[in-house]
Amino acid sequence: MKAPLFDYVNATSLDQALGLLDQYGEEARIIAGGQSLMATLNMRLSQPQVLIDINSIQGLSGVRETRKDIRIGALTRHMELLESDIVKEHLPLIASAMPHVAHVAIRNRGTIGGSLSMADPAAELPACCVALDATFELSSRSGQRVVKARDFFSGLYTTERQDNEILTQITIPKCAPQQLHYFEEINRRQGDFAIVGLACTAAVKKGLMSSKRSLKALDVVIFGCEDKPTRLAQTCLHLIGTSIDKNTITAAKQKLEQELNPTANLEGRADTKLHLATVLLERALLSLARDIGTID
């Protein structure tokens, strides 16, 4: 199929883009990398009156380091994140997730802002941003506001972003020296959206003996199951303060089964997804236990 008729504006400043968004409201659509939007236009799943291209706006892209955090411009391409030394050093969770985000030609154009705004429930970057407690900067004609990733995703392909707002910047705290992380996803083909995925960060309280080392903090996020990334708050609460061993892992898997409520889709049945999520949780905990030294 071919895209519907629309008008196109190549915006050269954020002000211009925000003005157009204000004017056209929900009839306008931002185009960033186009790697999700173009497909929906070609299929006529989306029929905007006007496309506002933000690719020529200066200052919306790039990765910067401040004392405490990393600032990522919304227009930063997946490939730039994958190749960034700053990301490798300070955001190892994102660094391990990026090879799973789509295929090379799509990574060359797709942007982090597009991925977060699209809010695909099986996408890697929304899940990582929730796990890492990122904050998003949204701009509109009436000013700026900051929304936590943990509040931003509100449902299937829906976010707290208003029609007149542009996501401009993502801020993520730097990984602390002792912080651990784990990322894995299950899919049929490298680069496809996950059937089920897991992103997690953890911190350890050091005991004198390795068997006494326990989890001080833990955040596990499952994606591809519910309508948005799911933080396993109860499961994590149960694990904090314990040292990871075979028994705690079994108990954690049972907690997950109570807490997670997957929806079936073309990628799998609900019970398949629930099972795969427990498998990923076990692998994550085993890996953390090896990092800590409580399991060989």
């Binding site: 173009m38 070609n42 291209d53 799509i106 060359n108």
Partner: peptide
């Protein structure tokens, strides 16, 4: 496009 591979079905000709 500009030295990097890209999907030509996911880019507008104007771009």
């Amino acid at each position: 496009v500009n030295g990097r591979s890209a999907r030509s079905c996911l880019m507008l000709a104007v771009q």
